[in-house]
Amino acid sequence: MSATAFDAAAAARAWRPPPLIASPLLRYAIYGGALLYALLAVGTLEVNWARAAEGLERGARFIAGFFPPDFVTKRHDIMEGLMESLTMTVVSTVIGVALSIPVAVGAARNLAPLPIYLFCRAIIAISRTFQEIIIAIVFVAMVGFGPLAGMLTLSFATIGFMAKLIAEDIEDIAEEQAEAVRATGASWFQLLAWGILPQVKPRLIGLSAYRLDINFRESAVLGLVGAGGIGDTLNTAFDRYEFDTAAAILIVIIAIVLAAEYSSSWIRRKVQ
């Protein structure tokens, strides 16, 4: 290992810091594409800057209107909206989780035959593609205004969310454990209960807690399209320029989300 034959100076001259993307063609294509997109996007951006500049002043007045938050005047409406949101959250999470389990089993390639697999994956895809609000519009058109539409919407969205993640978890299980159960001569349902369930249970509980949290957050906006909940109350407050009440509602939402988040992360830590 003598250093005489090695020309460190030449090697140092030839060395370049490594670029982020190795292939030069791909690199310039991505840079060019990003530049082109930036030009097009900014070029077609329709912003009324005069109105926006005015907005800062309006914003200041608007924020001033938030203070002090008024919990009292509309306390009945706030309570009512909150109860709708909370009940909606609970029922839709229970129904959604209960229905998502069979769908998840059907959407796991290592358990289900192909036709059932495709059918369940299609349910998941439809449920996940559309924003909750859009689904809520359809349900409101079908069952009328009120929390039932919201409940149905959230249940439907929960199925897609839970089934997809649980199905992935089932596909990732330790195959040997399932194999060992199968080797004892267990039936398909026994296989589920003894070989699969113990492995996915912590994640199932954790995700359910997380989804409860999400469902509450979503329930706060479904009111905008008439599907009940605290969002309805909030929307009304904005419509009537009762910004102090709106501020109070926002604070209540943040407080509940905070509480839900802490408890759901606590539950997740417990079951892991």
């Binding site: 290992m1 090695f6 460190a8 090697a11 060395w15």
Partner: peptide, 21 residues
Amino acid sequence: RRDVEEAFRLLHRVGLDHMVD
């Protein structure tokens, strides 16, 4: 430049100058 040169010299010394990148 001399830092990079030193780096090459040391990597050569420990037999890793072919793995710089």
